[in-house]
Design a protein around this nucleic acid. Structure first.
Lengths: 223, 223, 223, 223
DNA sequence: CATGAATGAGCTTTCATTCAT
DNA sequence: AATGAATGAAAGCTCATTCAT
């Protein structure tokens, strides 16, 4: 009875909730629940399969919705990641801001250990998103940009502390590079540990990383 | 928008040339040349497009061969990467072995600078392979394993040096973790710099990284 | 890129309001208003997007109703067009009937001009419906039939006049074919002009068309 | 074995024959045959189902090839129509050029009959393409343009003849409008007759159309 | 050795229609 | 009378791999 429509390359400006044309359409309670279910499912399968490897069907299957429901709440797969990234971003920004107070000396070391401990938690909780953003190919502009921003926010905070700390010393360090390097190290080693399954002891892990950071920021090697 | 399927292949991944049952077909001179051309082409397009984003067609087009020729020399796409990885592996092993002699003190710092400088060169030359292996998902067993091996070889060497250097000092460092962390740092920051286009000055870059490594390996932060 | 499916509907296409079994639900005042709003919205978006390209959502969005409301008043998309076609049909029938009086000679030419002028107005007002019906594919039985009927009603009237007018003359004309041809011409050229944007001057347009009709109906070419 | 690739929105520049990036790839004999088979199949199913209603699968099924083969020769459905349109275009241009010699008077009437007879043949042979182009929605730029061009080429030729013929006479005709109108008439009435199945006698059809054209171009109605 | 045509599973996305509230 | 969430059958397109020549 219904006459099939000719497919259009340039998708019509339709879309009910995925507000391509109209206002972003406020979701009802049930809709909000489904959307949340989809996000949670996405987070889970991204973790299991990696973002690029995840199929929309993996998400809906996990969420227990129909395939079509997905496109009721997101225009495409990238949008889910963006939504999750927003949450992650807030969490990481907060973490970065807590770096501000890190001091020199023994007390600082203790603070660093705690901070790194928190980083590990945050990484574990957000790894699917962090990884996706950190591994974004330059072609994926959105994610590339998000990834850079995340890195910059983070490294920026560290950089400031390094700049303040680095009074003199023999082997000077460029604070921007050093900060980026330290963050990169933290991110990557968490990846090896938590994702790729390297076997480290958490206490040793935190201690060691804290030590390297401490030396990298405040210290100068004994000559 | 389509994910190509892996038509059930019972073929093993061994043979250097197709026909996995017989003895690894020996290549004539012309065959060797074609194979080399394909490898070089692969290296080039992997750099431009990333391994997972590269299509077999991209490689053959670059190599100027027919599409079918590819499967004359490789059983599948993964094998090309493996072949390239073998070359990379040798180069990196050699680099790692040169780490053995790194000493304490000022002289060691100089050695470190040179070594890191070499690392940067090696990274630049081999980035497509390194990245592919470092980003391999656990599901991709072959690459996952190769990546681990690469990392282990590398970190193992560093680890030994650290173990020897770390006599005492306040904040003890677990040499395995530290080594992995330092290598991870080096790999990742090269990625940001050389692949994702962060703007660092090479001299500063090398100096800063050398300093962090030096402190991380030999040093203890001033308290 | 997807063609929506017609989930098997056993429902007939009759009822003015859903629930095809019972008597055609009488609408309250509010219902009548909503239905009218939907019809008006449909007419508007059909004009902008073409009937087959219009999504039910486009209509409800324009009408400011919920998506579901649409199916409260129409069994499916085709029914809206049918409803609009009914209105158009009346208007065109009336126009066709006014053709009856067209006379021979100079006076008739003037009448023809006026009549064609009215046709242009009617076309402009009803183009979305006319186009949809005229372009209906044979598979779309309903529309195909409606389109034929519209054409027949129209051409029938013209045909009669031609039959009466064509006394003798050299090149005989089959009145049925001629009438259909003239109507087809009028419809199509209005389409080029008003829809596809050909640039014609209205006065010239009406004069020229009137002349061709006049010659076609009454005239014989000078030999 | 093969690692599925992440889908990319911006399709890679790949494509072997469909020369999206490289040179248009010359087809071998077999390829040429398959391409021809696909074109012929497309022409057939376009006729049965209408261009917009035709699915790529309909074409490949008819051609007896796999779905993928289609995309080996055409980038998408529109390209097939374009390819067919090129052939049609040549045929129609040739037909239009043959209009040049049409004369006044009785001889001209005979010429016109023959010409219209040829038009009917050409229409019958090319209806799927002609219809697709004539019904192209303004949004489909390519087809819209092709359709206009076709119409202009045609009407241009007629227009010239009308301009030359129209010496004086009472009811002046704007040659551009008249030409477009006559062509539109011819196209549409062929559509009703040959596609929508109106029942006309061919001889009468040709005679009647020729008469209307003759009067329209040369004649003036008897007053 | 080499070619290039062919295959087909599988992915993303669309939208008419249904239905619980 | 109205809402808006959910469904699911297609459609277009991609590309690793196979194979006849």
């Amino acid at each position: 009875m219904a006459k099939p429509t000719a497919p259009k390359r340039n998708a019509s400006q339709t879309g009910r909730i995925r507000g391509n044309g109209g206002p972003p359409r406020v979701l009802g309670e049930q809709g909000e629940r489904t959307r949340a279910r989809l996000l949670e499912a996405a987070r889970k399968v991204f973790r299991e399969r990696t973002y690029p490897e995840t199929r929309v069907d993996d998400i809906t299957r996990e969420a227990g919705t129909s395939h079509g429901a997905f496109y009721l709440y997101f225009n495409n797969k990238t949008e889910v990641l963006e939504a999750l990234a927003a949450e992650t971003s807030i969490e990481l920004d907060e973490l970065a801001s807590r770096f501000a107070g890190i001091e020199r000396g023994e007390a600082g070391f203790e603070q660093l250990r705690n901070w790194i401990d928190s980083f590990v938690d945050a990484y574990e909780a957000n790894s699917p998103v962090i990884i996706a953003l950190m591994m974004a190919r330059p072609q994926e502009e959105r994610f590339d940009r998000l990834g850079r921003e995340m890195m910059n926010t983070f490294a920026g905070q560290i950089s400031k502390t390094i700049r303040e700390a680095t009074a003199g010393g023999k082997h000077q360090v460029q604070s921007g590079i050093a900060a980026t390097a330290l963050v990169a190290m933290l991110e990557r080693i968490c990846y090896y540990w938590l994702v790729r399954g390297a076997e480290f002891d958490r206490a040793e892990f935190v201690d060691t990383l804290a030590a390297i950071w401490h030396r990298g920021i405040f210290g100068e090697s004994h000559v």
